[in-house]
Design a protein around this nucleic acid. Sequence first.
DNA 1: TTGCTCCTCACGTCACGTGAGGTGGC
DNA 2: TTGCTCCTCACGTCACGTGAGGTGGC
Lengths: 269, 269
Amino acid sequence: MVQALTIGDFSRMTHLSVKTLRYYHRVGLLEPADVNAATGYRYYTVGQLQTALAIRRYRDLGMPVDDVRSVLAAPDPASRDALLAVHLDRLQAQLAETEAAVASLRDLLTRPSITIDVEHRRVEAVAALAMTKTVDSQSLGPWWRAAQLELPAGTVGGLFDDELFTQERGDAVLFVRSDAAEPAGRATPFVVPAGELAVAVHQGSHQDADRTYAALGSYILERGLGAPGPVREYYLVGLRETADQARWRTEICWPIDISRKADTGRLEL
Amino acid sequence: MVQALTIGDFSRMTHLSVKTLRYYHRVGLLEPADVNAATGYRYYTVGQLQTALAIRRYRDLGMPVDDVRSVLAAPDPASRDALLAVHLDRLQAQLAETEAAVASLRDLLTRPSITIDVEHRRVEAVAALAMTKTVDSQSLGPWWRAAQLELPAGTVGGLFDDELFTQERGDAVLFVRSDAAEPAGRATPFVVPAGELAVAVHQGSHQDADRTYAALGSYILERGLGAPGPVREYYLVGLRETADQARWRTEICWPIDISRKADTGRLEL
DNA sequence: TTGCTCCTCACGTCACGTGAGGTGGC
DNA sequence: TTGCTCCTCACGTCACGTGAGGTGGC
């Protein structure tokens, strides 16, 4: 015999609030077993308790409602576990980012000013193998990591459109110098454009790179050297060399109009 | 000489998007040094870069904007660090909850059904020292932990209004049996009401208690024993005895109408 | 002068919570 | 019959993002 549970009963038993249960109904995550057509009353069954408890646990893990729906709809435990693993990886990555953010904050508080040495450099156009993507800044990080590991051997460089920072969406290119005429994996032939650049070396995690960007930007602003175009990064020591981000060394290159002034310099910020 | 940075320049240097900078202006988190009255153009200074970078780091830690404002307004490093420590504690607690949620999910998936033994029990009114609060379910957890540690020696029990679960807000009481006529700390004299209860023992973390609640509720539903009133918990082995939540034992007590039937039983859910 | 940058609304997102105002069920 | 439970809107929250439509600055 199937007992009908009112929304209140079901709430008390699952510790999901009545509002939450109505929301889950509305978005199709947990449909009541029966809805009275005349009154609109929702009725649940004892069999739905397990589903509700599972939903609670997935949500406690911060899994988005759409993903919970997918997990519940998984045809077998193996595919369910695969979806779950993806989310657990995401949690792990978040944790790592939070730890890096704590370190980054500590660094800013204990060492409020940094000094950068700026070099002016003219680079010629060179042939390369590159991966290109229009990304939003949210997904830049994962793409950046994956793409670096996919590129053939060599020093990796990157080009990043202004819009990536100002509009949270823009073009990014990661490349490795190469004369290859054929694609290698997903990397395709590409010509890295020539340019005049102000270059500063950033030491440490990429999460702290904004400090060097700010300092370099100030340097260029003070001298009125600003020029349009994407910024450029060269990973002298990076993800491919070591997992220890403290040892990373990145050249950060800002486009300048070298015709105005050509001295190099130093800036404390 | 103070250089004026447009919002675009400032965005490129801080890696905060233009939309975000406008938002921070609107909510008073980061006011431009100057706003042109005629055009509405925002202008920032190099000196504001440090503040912007700090805001980015606080936000990367998931600190709410209001809290970031407080941290920035802190009169000295010590009070700033105190505010920061509160947030880091919150992060730590979140991490622990996520870990518990993972364990709880694993438990549900590997051991989908549980069996509970239900005892019917009549309890008489007893004198106690109690802490009482109207809480929302969000803040129930922290209050519950703190209150338990504050109560005098004895077995702690709790009373929880239905509304806490169904409406996400309601009255909670934690008590310890005592004949004291005077308050002890923040605990005040209280009479725990008499009641007729269906009782099941929940073993393990409180995060899993909903499974026992669901099973006990099903048991009561099947027998038509339901009665109004708050649910009750007794912490036989709990926070005060051990930090190892796997060893916790909690009696979960649901009010019943004992006049209808008086048998005890067992239920698998 | 062109087009690039900047502006202000108004609305959307996510996962619900908060009333208001009303009806049904025991 | 009472009052408790349940219902449906419509709007709010948080920290922004997304257009639309328009003006100013170099």
